[in-house]
Simulated assay, not measured.
Amino acid sequence: MALQFTKEKAPLTPKAIQEAEQRLGRKFPEDYKRFLLEHHGGHPEPCGFEFVQPRSNGEKDWALIAYFLGLDGKHETIADYLVSYEDRIPRDTIPIARDPGGNPILLTLGGKNQGKVYFWMREHEPEDPDEVQEYDYLGFVANSLDEFLGALTDPP
């Protein structure tokens, strides 16, 4: 099944993406920029994804994307999620989507994990706030945004 989107906003222009990068103080990977030129927010179908459970021995689980976050709008934008989760997610990540419970799907913007996709879940958040920035508490999803989008499927 080809990936399709519902409830998406109009695709962004290169200028709008550049302005958003400046406003957010983050440089987006090229695959994410290409994605934003075609899709801006919205619900994907299929919407299921597999991830490796945090702090496990490779144990996998399934989750769903409720929708991809937009760069602008009245609510639940990337900027909103950055404010809400700024001390709870690694600083070199950006929330690009969310599950039905509001847990963000993150894209890594720099460092050794650059371009990788992770899943943050409240139930795996450490009690010690100094540990929150660690990747050990994130579920690994994919090595790139393109890999992530290509792997979306109907959940089992």
Rank of each mutant, 00 (worst) to 15 (best):
H124W: 11
K15M: 14
F119P: 13
V52R: 09
P126A: 03
L109E: 01
L106N: 01
I17F: 00
P156M: 05
T13I: 14
A20N: 04
Q22S: 11
L152E: 04
L82Q: 13
G42Y: 04
A142K: 01
K7R: 13
T77M: 00
P156E: 07
K60S: 11
L24V: 06
R26H: 06
P156H: 02
H124S: 06
T108M: 11
E21F: 03
R55N: 13
E8Y: 00
I94M: 10
T13Y: 12
E30R: 02
L149S: 10
Y32E: 11
N57L: 15
M1C: 11
E147D: 15
N113H: 14
T93P: 01
E59M: 08
H40I: 08
Y81N: 09
F49D: 02
F140E: 12
E30N: 05
W62G: 13
L12W: 04
D31T: 09
E127P: 00
H43A: 15
D92E: 15
M1E: 12
G150T: 04
H39N: 13
Y85V: 12
L82R: 15
A142Q: 02
D128P: 05
P46T: 10
Y67K: 14
I65A: 08
A142C: 07
L71K: 02
G41H: 06
Y137F: 14
A142G: 06
T6C: 02
E76C: 08
F35A: 09
L37D: 04
L12I: 12
A97Q: 11
E21N: 07
Q18G: 03
Q22V: 07
T6Q: 02
A20E: 14
P14Q: 05
G70H: 07
F119E: 09
F35S: 09
Y118N: 06
K74N: 07
E127K: 04
D146Y: 01
I96F: 10
G111T: 11
P44C: 08
K15P: 02
R23W: 01
N143D: 14
R55I: 13
F119C: 05
E19P: 04
P90K: 06
L37T: 13
A16M: 11
L3E: 05
